[in-house]
Design a protein around this nucleic acid. Structure first.
Length: 372
RNA sequence: AGAGGCACUGUUUGCAG
């Protein structure tokens, strides 16, 4: 039984989910461990539907399978379902509480995450790290710093998370200070340092670090790629892109955006067309390429052709109309949107002000729930 | 002896910077 379960894990880790499922189906007996192993096999390979079916069919749930399912739901943005599952759990341990914390943080619900962190019965280093990363990833830099200062125990992950928060804030010096003082560094830590150089335009340092790294992965290559594109160095970016062994959505999108930022929409479109598969962010990037380069009609058509749209897609169109002073279109879009975030409100604010409706702009401003 | 939680890269936010 154990051997078979190990097999499922191994197969799933190499992306052979269907093989894993065949092994699972052929097992004479299964225990809770093998059920959970199969569940995470689906989850790790992005098969939420299968994971749900399996979860529904499980003879007995355990805290393991429930936590795994909770995380899977949250990663798909199904935070309400994740919360319901959490509430229905018969027992919860530190891991499931932390999973719930992360579920909120991943869905940008930082206050809820905070509440979980404060109310959970006990916290270990992972919980602290999760809260720290939650702050950092949601742009709550001061909160991150404060929490970091309060931590009585820190490991490599805590240090890397804090370094990353500094990097995001453009504070190269502090990032480097943490990095240099780290007792041990993982590839992720190195990538974080690389990213700090990239974001602050220190190309030479980025390059030196990149080539000095003992090992590198796709994230390192993508980061180096964005170091070049962020500084407008398309030729170097192209050459690096050509030397890459593998590419993911991010690599392609970085190139697409680079062209768009130089006003080279045709080149962006070429990149887009060369992509074998596209995710929503790459569609949005293409949409934005048209929108910010004055091809609003083309953007509109693309928007209409998209199978899936998120808040960002809508904002791109809204901002395009707002920028071009088309108040009516902006307003229509705004009314059609399900949700309005800061970006959408700002776009409307700017549209009204541009058209001389200052008082109305003021009234929008007063109605905004969040401001920055 | 086998299963669940944490860190790194891309897409939207102005006539100011």
């Amino acid at each position: 039984l154990v051997t078979w379960t190990v097999m499922i894990n191994a197969l799933a880790q190499h992306g052979h989910v269907d093989e894993a499922k065949r092994v699972f189906d052929s097992m004479r007996e299964r225990d809770r461990v093998s059920w959970t192993a199969m569940l995470t096999a689906f989850v790790d390979n992005g098969r939420l539907g299968d994971a749900r079916n399996l979860f529904a069919k499980m003879p007995e749930r355990s805290i393991f399978s429930e936590t795994a399912m909770l995380t899977a739901l949250a990663r798909e943005g199904l935070i309400d379902e994740a919360k319901n599952l959490f509430d229905s759990m018969l027992e919860r341990d530190m891991i499931s509480w932390t999973a719930m914390l992360v579920a909120y943080a991943d869905n940008k619900m930082i206050e809820e995450a905070e509440l979980v962190f404060r109310t959970m019965p006990e916290r270990d280093l992972v919980s602290w790290n999760a809260m720290l990363a939650g702050y950092a990833q949601n742009g709550q830099f001061d909160e991150a710093k404060r929490l970091f200062a309060r931590m009585r125990e820190k490991n490599m992950i805590s240090l890397t998370a804090m370094a990353s928060a500094y990097a995001q804030n453009g504070d190269l010096e502090s990032t480097k200070k943490i990095f240099d003082r780290m007792p041990e560094r993982s590839l992720v830590s190195w990538n974080t340092m690389l990213s700090a150089y990239a974001q602050t335009g220190h190309i030479e340092e980025a390059k030196a670090l990149f080539y000095a790294m003992r090992e590198s992965n796709l994230v390192s290559w993508n980061t180096m790629l964005s170091a070049y594109t962020a500084s407008g160095n398309i030729p170097e970016a192209r050459s690096l892109f050509a030397r890459m062994k593998e590419w993911d959505f991010i690599s392609w999108t970085v190139m697409l955006v680079a062209y768009s930022q130089q006003g080279l929409v045709e080149e962006s479109k070429q990149v887009f067309d060369e992509m074998q598969e596209r995710d929503l962010a790459s569609w949005n990037a293409m949409l934005s390429a048209y929108a910010i380069n004055g091809h609003i009609e083309t953007a509109r058509n693309l928007f209409g052709a998209m199978e899936e749209r998120d808040q960002i897609s809508w904002n791109i169109m809204l901002c395009a109309h707002s920028r071009s002073g088309n108040l009516e279109n902006a307003k229509n879009l705004f009314d059609l949107m399900r949700e309005h975030d800061l970006v959408s409100w700002n776009a409307m604010l700017s549209a009204y002000s541009q058209n001389g409706h200052l008082e109305y702009a003021k009234s929008i401003f007063d109605r905004m729930q969040e401001r920055d």
